[in-house]
């Protein structure tokens, strides 16, 4: 038992209701030192509620919520975390350096102003008023504020929204550096590439529960399918029996297919129906993958009900 390493954050059987809506339905989540976890899921899946619990913004109706073994509503626990929230409008008239100084003052042993600015790539912005910055620059300032307290656990909510590619790469590199130094990270994002680039572990949430958990590669295997849509006279039933097709269905006037061999399927489709039109090939996005995952669990739930 002495070698047992305590998690930096832990949710166990966490339940949260908003009126009749169940936002979290017995969520279990554990995060260890130096671990980079991506929390993904469609809107309304309960991600924000889970983060809100861990930040001490809301209280769970049932279950355990711990940050470094303590209640997140205690200042002592939160002095070890850094936070970057998605929607936070900071005072426009304050300069970047002043915002950093203020945030650093909340922590027992913060980084120097210059160190934080350097890590977030905002050294040239320190004297500028926050309100005069572009959206991407403001995001970087918020990132600097998140890391300025030398946190052991970093919460990043959609950190790279509004950033250009270069800024995003730089931010990713810094996050990797922090993780290498032993900082744990909880990341929520809509960008699959972001989760791919950073996360050791991915949790997909739906309806207040974790429905899929695993490494990035495991998740990617489920989302690497492409979807093909077209107007055709071909019979849905027949197409769905082709080996290239994972699933086929009629969607309005169009035939909808998911496939892991898009090129071969398109070739075969064009060959089989010369009149085929409105052909579209799309990589299944992360949001769609979640829809799939969600639908799967819904099916399995109803299957179990039927079996019972």
């Amino acid at each position: 038992m002495s070698t047992y390493i305590a998690p930096v954050a832990r949710l166990a059987g966490a339940v949260k209701h908003y009126g009749s809506l169940t936002a979290l339905d017995g969520l279990d989540l554990m995060l260890h030192r130096g671990e980079m976890l991506a929390l993904l899921g469609p809107n309304g899946a309960g991600k924000s509620t889970a983060i809100g619990l861990l930040l001490g913004l809301i209280r769970a109706d049932a279950g355990t919520v711990e940050l470094f073994g303590a209640d997140p509503q205690q200042l002592m626990a939160r002095r070890r975390i850094g936070v970057m929230l998605q929607a936070a409008s900071l005072p426009h008239t304050l300069h970047v350096g002043e915002l950093l100084r203020l945030t650093a003052s909340y922590y027992p042993a913060p980084r120097t102003l210059h160190e934080s600015a350097e890590l977030a790539g905002i050294v040239d912005l320190l004297k500028r008023p926050y309100g005069k910055l572009s959206g991407g620059q403001q995001r970087r300032v918020q990132f600097a504020m998140a890391l300025c307290g030398r946190p052991e656990l970093l919460f990043l909510d959609e950190p790279t929204v509004g950033m250009d590619i270069e800024a995003r790469q730089k931010l990713w590199a810094t996050i990797r550096q922090l993780v290498a130094e032993g900082c744990a990270v909880v990341l929520t994002t809509h960008y699959l590439e972001e989760a791919e680039a950073l996360a050791d572990r991915v949790c997909v949430m739906a309806r207040g529960k974790i429905i899929s958990e695993g490494s990035v590669d495991e998740l990617r295997a489920r989302v690497s399918l492409k979807r093909v849509r077209c107007m055709t006279r071909l019979d849905t039933q027949a197409v769905s029996s082709w080996p290239e097709v994972v699933e086929a269905r009629q969607e309005g006037e169009r035939l909808w297919m998911s496939t892991d061999a898009a090129e071969a399927l398109v070739r075969r489709l064009l060959h089989a129906d010369a009149q085929l039109s409105e052909l579209e090939v799309q990589r299944a996005g992360l949001a769609e993958a979640f829809t799939e995952l969600t639908r799967e669990t819904e099916h399995s739930v109803s299957d179990q009900r039927e079996a019972a």
Binding site: I5, G69, P108
Partner: peptide, 29 residues
């Protein structure tokens, strides 16, 4: 569980001088 928590840093307390600094910074901002 509690005793094996990372205790390498004296994080649990914050010197009263630093807490005071947080009050001053907040008012100043």
């Amino acid at each position: 569980l509690v005793s094996t928590l990372d205790s390498s840093r004296p994080m649990n307390g914050m010197s009263s001088r630093r807490v005071w600094a947080a009050y001053v910074e907040e008012a100043r901002s």
